[in-house]
Each structure stands twice: as structure tokens, then as C-alpha cells.
Simulated assay, not measured.
Amino acid sequence: MSLRPWLIAFRAITAREALRFVHQRERFLAALVRPLVWLLVFAAGFRAALGLSIIPPYQTYITYETYIIPGLCGMILLFNGMQSSLSLVYDREMGSMRLLLTAPLPRWFLLFSKLCGASFISILQVLAFLAVAAAFGIVLPLWGYVAVLPALLIGGLMLGALGLALSSFIKQLENFAGVMNFVIFPMFFLSSALYPLWKMAESSPLLRDICAVNPFTHVVELIRFALYLQLNLAALGWVLLTALVFMALALWGYDPARGLVRRKG
């Protein structure tokens, strides 16, 4: 079987995602403004209140701004994954999603190509954020900027698959926007993005356990260790497992025999 149709489809879908992003410049600015507000405003206020001990992968005491950098990278992946899935709901209402899913290629490949396109854009946004953070004096290990790329890709695919699964079960655009808020904020705040797990355990062991099973926590830790040239195998395994689960849910939801595509038809 020739790979040419697969490559053409992959390039077309990812190029469409890139064009959509280019024509939505405010989306790029919003992706930078959100983490920069946390970095430059909230972190300055929390710096004195939150003391951070030496924890892996750090070899010395760090500032609070340095600690939250991986969490803010994860925030960009999370918001972009949800926004990309929001566009899927719009495409379905406009009818273009139906055309995509009727292409003579496996549905899993078409959806995976959509995820890859969104993940590539997320990586560019994260790199832009890291460049701005470096300009404000938060410099990470040089090779960490390269080592983090696979972690960003895997994390972006997992969070994009979550958004894809949600979009497959939601009929209307306005409903998806509401669901996003119920997913994004609990995932972000109930994670290690802003506070280490040992700090959570001091206030509530139950809260710490909830954060420990949150898939977003493991995305953040995967990024954190990668930035310091280390591999967190536990985080990698959990992220890959949840990515497969969310992708399976998305495929089930977009199955014409059972999912929303059939009901809309």
C-alpha cells in the first residue's frame, strides 16, 4: 500500500491547523499573556509565601518563578489542546468535519493528524514563552530547550486527545465552551503546576492524592524533568496510558455507528 495518500492527508490537515493559527493572531498573544501574568504577577506575590526545598530534578534551591515554568508550559498545551478541539465542534456545525471523516483513510489516522497539527502549534507557543521568560532572567539549561521537545509533543498529544474526546460527545459550540472551564481549571489547579505535591500533602493528604492521579500533573512533571535533561519514567507511562484512553474515547465518540456523527446525520 502506498504511503503517498497518507502523507498528503497528514500534510493537508496539519497545514490547515497552521493556517488557522496564522489567521488568529490573538490566539498566539493569548497563549503568551496567560502564563506571563502568572509568571510576572502571581509568582512575585507567592515568592515570599512559598518556600521550595531541594526536590528532583533540581540540585539546589530554586525561586518560585523557576518552579512554575514547567507548569506554565503545560498550561499552554492545555489551553491550546482545548481550543483546537473547540474548532472541531465548529467544523462539525459547518459540515467540514463530516468531509474530513469521510476521507478514504482510517478515522484514527485523520484524528491523529489533527492532534499532531495542534501539538506542533503548541510547541511553538511554548518555545516563544520560554524565550520571553529567558528575557526576564529565568534561564534554563541550554540543552533542556531541546530535550523538552519530545515531552511537549507527548503532553500536547495527550491533552489534545482529551479535548478531542470531549468534542466528540458535545453537540453545540456554546456547550463545549462551558465544559472547557470545568475541565481546564480543575486540571490546572489540582496539579503540581503551581505547588509541589509535598506542599499539597501538608494541607490535605486527600488533595495530594487527587493531584497525584491528575494526568496534567504528570505532563508537568514530564516537562519539568526534561528541561533538566532527565526522564521521569512514571510520568511518561501515565501520560502515554491516558493518551491512549482519551484517543480510544474520541474514536468511539466519532464512530458513525455509535457516536455523535451518526446522531447528527
Rank of each mutant, 00 (worst) to 15 (best):
C73N: 00
L39K: 01
Y90M: 11
L244C: 14
F42Y: 02
G160N: 00
L32Q: 14
Q230G: 13
S122L: 04
G253V: 05
F169R: 15
P35S: 07
A250M: 09
V126Q: 04
N175C: 02
M1K: 12
L206F: 12
S167W: 06
T102D: 10
A151L: 07
L52D: 00
I154N: 01
E221P: 06
E65T: 01
Y145V: 00
I154D: 01
R98A: 08
F109Y: 15
V179Q: 06
R224A: 10
L32W: 07
W38R: 04
Y67N: 00
M82C: 01
G160D: 00
F189Q: 04
I223S: 01
D91M: 12
A48H: 13
F216D: 09
L115H: 11
K199L: 14
D209A: 09
L52E: 04
I121K: 02
I54Y: 06
Y195W: 15
A212K: 13
I138W: 09
A234S: 09
G137E: 01
K171Q: 11
E17Y: 03
F246V: 05
L229M: 13
I184L: 15
P56A: 13
G117D: 04
A103F: 15
G155F: 06
D209M: 07
A193P: 13
I13N: 04
A49Y: 05
T102Q: 12
K171W: 09
H23T: 08
L190T: 08
G178Y: 10
T217A: 11
L130S: 00
Y90T: 11
A15I: 00
L50I: 15
P150G: 10
F79K: 02
V179T: 05
W6K: 10
C116I: 12
T66I: 04
W252I: 14
L40Q: 08
A165G: 02
G253P: 09
M247I: 09
W198V: 03
G178N: 11
L40Y: 09
C73M: 08
A151P: 04
R11M: 05
L207Y: 07
V132D: 00
A48W: 07
I154M: 04
L3E: 03
A235L: 03
M158F: 01
L52C: 01
Q230L: 13
V220P: 14
L241E: 06
L231V: 15
L236R: 00
V219P: 07
L164E: 09
C116R: 05
P35F: 13
A135Y: 15
G71V: 04
R262W: 15
R47N: 08
Y58H: 04
A257N: 11
K264C: 15
G237D: 10
V37D: 10
L52A: 02
V148F: 07
V89K: 01
P141H: 07
P196W: 07
E202K: 06
I154K: 01
N214L: 12
V41F: 10
I69Q: 05
L127F: 02
C73S: 02
G155A: 09
G259I: 09
L260G: 12
G81W: 10
G156D: 00
T14L: 14
T217M: 12
M94N: 05
I69E: 05
R258Q: 14
I68K: 01
P106S: 10
Y228S: 03
T66Q: 02
T60A: 13
L162C: 09
M82Y: 14
A118E: 15
A15W: 10
L52Y: 06
F109S: 12
T60V: 06
I223M: 03
F225S: 08
R47S: 08
A128E: 05
A128S: 10
G144A: 03
